Computed example of a mutant assay.
Amino acid sequence: MPEQCHIASLLVHVRPDASQGLMDYLAAHRDIEVHAASPEGKLVLVVERSRPDGITDALEQLAGQPGVVNCVLIYHESMTAMEGDQVLTGSAGAPAA
């Protein structure tokens, strides 16, 4: 069976006074990317793991960080690692924007 790649998008709300601590935590995790962040403590994260329970683990670990008010899954996709490495192209064959 080909190796799986699980991509998830999470929405995290952290108290603004605790946001630097969470950003430091995220910087130490190469499989979690901060896609967007607001001064009010709202973050959009992208998580990539090899197993589906890895996404659940990330949710639980993030929810347990100091100052995190809420952490929710907003998107999850499973693909083979080979599919995940392909370049997406538009209808004309050019790379998608």
Rank of each mutant, 00 (worst) to 15 (best):
M1Y: 12
M1N: 10
M1A: 15
P2R: 06
E3W: 08
E3G: 09
E3P: 06
Q4W: 09
Q4L: 12
H6R: 07
I7H: 08
S9I: 10
L10V: 08
L10P: 08
V12I: 06
H13Q: 14
H13L: 12
H13K: 13
V14N: 02
V14R: 02
R15A: 15
R15N: 12
R15G: 01
R15I: 11
P16F: 04
A18E: 13
A18F: 14
S19M: 15
Q20V: 13
G21D: 11
G21W: 12
L22P: 04
M23C: 11
M23I: 12
D24H: 14
D24I: 11
D24N: 12
D24S: 13
D24P: 04
D24R: 14
Y25P: 06
Y25Q: 07
Y25R: 10
L26F: 06
L26T: 06
A27I: 07
A27P: 07
A27G: 14
H29W: 11
H29T: 04
D31W: 15
D31P: 04
I32A: 02
E33F: 10
V34H: 01
V34P: 00
H35M: 14
A36M: 05
A37P: 01
A37L: 09
S38G: 02
P39W: 10
P39A: 14
E40T: 15
V46K: 14
V46C: 10
V46H: 13
V47M: 01
E48Q: 14
R49N: 05
R49W: 03
S50F: 02
S50C: 00
P52T: 04
P52R: 07
P52A: 05
P52K: 04
P52N: 07
G54P: 01
I55F: 08
T56D: 08
T56H: 06
D57F: 05
D57V: 02
D57C: 02
A58M: 08
A58T: 14
A58D: 05
A58I: 09
L59M: 09
L59A: 08
L59N: 04
E60L: 11
E60R: 11
E60W: 08
E60G: 02
Q61F: 08
Q61I: 13
Q61D: 14
L62K: 11
L62I: 15
L62D: 07
A63V: 00
G64E: 04
P66N: 09
P66M: 03
P66H: 10
G67V: 09
G67C: 03
V68P: 02
V69C: 09
V69Y: 10
C71G: 01
C71M: 08
V72M: 05
I74A: 01
I74P: 00
I74T: 15
I74C: 03
Y75C: 01
Y75G: 00
Y75T: 00
E77N: 10
E77A: 11
M79P: 01
M79Y: 02
T80A: 00
T80Q: 02
A81C: 04
A81F: 08
A81S: 10
A81N: 05
E83P: 01
G84E: 02
Q86M: 12
Q86C: 05
V87G: 00
L88T: 06
T89M: 12
T89W: 02
S91G: 12
S91L: 13
G93K: 07
A94Y: 08
A94C: 05
A94H: 10
P95L: 13
A97Y: 06
A97D: 09
